[in-house]
């Protein structure tokens, strides 16, 4: 199944901004974070189709997964 991944802010560096990839059904947000070498503690938000989801969320065909880094400065 096809899933579009959008990376934001510093996560684009050395990776990509947007890519559509093929995955087997049952793949989770956490699996994709691991594949992209994005450490859990650096993640600010993971969204599927603009809605906040946790790492155990499974993806469906044509989902758009957006991944943002943590922002904490003031």
């Amino acid at each position: 199944m096809k899933v579009t991944i959008k990376l934001f802010a510093t996560f684009r560096t050395g990776r990509f901004g947007e890519e559509t990839r093929d995955y087997n059904p049952g793949i989770t947000v956490g699996d994709i974070l691991t594949e992209l070498n994005l450490p859990s503690e650096e993640i600010g938000a993971t969204l599927i189709n603009h809605r906040h989801v946790e790492e155990d969320q499974q993806l469906q065909e044509d989902d758009i997964l957006s991944i943002f880094p943590l922002v904490g400065g003031g």
């Binding site: 802010a9 503690e41 993640i43 943590l70 904490g72 400065g73």
Partner: peptide, 10 residues
């Protein structure tokens, strides 16, 4: 901030 562990971000 559910995943934050060290108090800082980017």
């Amino acid at each position: 901030y559910s995943r934050a562990t060290n108090g800082k971000g980017v």
